[in-house]
Simulated assay, not measured.
Amino acid sequence: MRIILATTCAVMSLTGMVCAQQPPAAPMSDQDYMKRVMMAAPPQVVEQATVVRMKDGAMQTMKQGTNEWTCMEANGVPMCLDPNAMDWAHAWQSHGPATEKTGFIYMLAGDTGASNTDPYATEKKADNHWIETGSHVMIVGAAAKTMPGYPKTADPDPTKPYVMWPGTPYEHLMIPVK
């Protein structure tokens, strides 16, 4: 569990730098934060997960979990990651080598959009193929790279499964959930 939390701290610290480039949001109460995070995954996952929050420049564990999932909000998006997905997220945020382990991420509250071609884009631009995917799950790591048959286009249909960041070390499978 310490590895997960250490990785979470690293991921959230780096994510915090991206957040710092955006206008500051109004402070959210711990109660409201927990409500938002609870929307990230099925109750069977999130109710037993560790919940963390970046607050005052430091990572805080708001709730210690009993399963191996870590849930948080990053850039206004609630998510829950398994340990392998935490490793993948840390590699992506630190520009490190992508993990070969297969990970899973829940983002059932949807996202606010991202470039489908540039893993480090922080805003929509005319040439970065910005895409918003509603409620979805993600398969990350080596398995996502070896799953044939999913579109690897710059502008996929976000209502169907597709590969995000194709051709990069961090390509992963996006699977919309309704």
Rank of each mutant, 00 (worst) to 15 (best):
124 K>Y: 00
158 P>L: 01
113 G>T: 08
87 D>E: 14
44 Q>K: 14
72 M>I: 04
47 E>F: 14
15 T>E: 03
91 A>E: 11
61 T>V: 10
37 V>L: 10
14 L>M: 06
74 A>S: 15
172 H>W: 04
68 E>G: 01
72 M>C: 08
79 M>D: 01
163 V>H: 12
47 E>W: 03
53 R>E: 08
173 L>R: 11
24 P>F: 00
134 G>A: 07
83 P>I: 12
105 I>E: 00
10 A>E: 12
65 G>E: 06
12 M>K: 00
152 K>L: 04
36 R>Y: 10
154 A>T: 11
154 A>S: 14
113 G>D: 09
53 R>W: 12
97 P>V: 07
149 G>W: 11
102 T>R: 04
169 P>W: 03
59 M>T: 10
86 M>A: 08
19 C>P: 08
18 V>M: 00
115 S>E: 05
89 A>L: 03
44 Q>E: 13
137 V>H: 05
128 N>D: 06
149 G>L: 00
139 I>G: 01
153 T>H: 06
64 Q>Y: 09
106 Y>C: 11
105 I>Y: 02
156 P>I: 00
80 C>Y: 06
155 D>V: 06
2 R>N: 02
135 S>D: 02
98 A>F: 02
28 M>N: 13
64 Q>V: 02
27 P>D: 02
73 E>S: 15
109 A>L: 08
24 P>A: 12
84 N>C: 14
43 P>F: 10
44 Q>L: 13
64 Q>A: 07
143 A>F: 04
129 H>R: 13
120 Y>D: 00
137 V>K: 01
88 W>H: 02
84 N>K: 11
139 I>N: 03
85 A>Y: 02
13 S>A: 12
159 T>S: 09
27 P>K: 09
123 E>L: 04
78 P>Y: 11
33 Y>W: 15
113 G>M: 03
101 K>D: 08
4 I>C: 14
10 A>V: 04
19 C>E: 07
100 E>D: 04
35 K>A: 10
28 M>H: 03
158 P>S: 05
39 M>L: 13
66 T>C: 02
84 N>G: 07
125 K>M: 14
9 C>F: 12
1 M>K: 05
5 L>M: 07
42 P>S: 04
169 P>T: 04
111 D>G: 06
105 I>P: 03
128 N>Q: 07
119 P>Q: 01
132 E>Q: 06
91 A>F: 08
64 Q>D: 11
147 M>H: 01
135 S>T: 06
124 K>E: 15
135 S>C: 01
16 G>D: 03
37 V>F: 04
69 W>M: 15
111 D>P: 04
168 T>P: 05
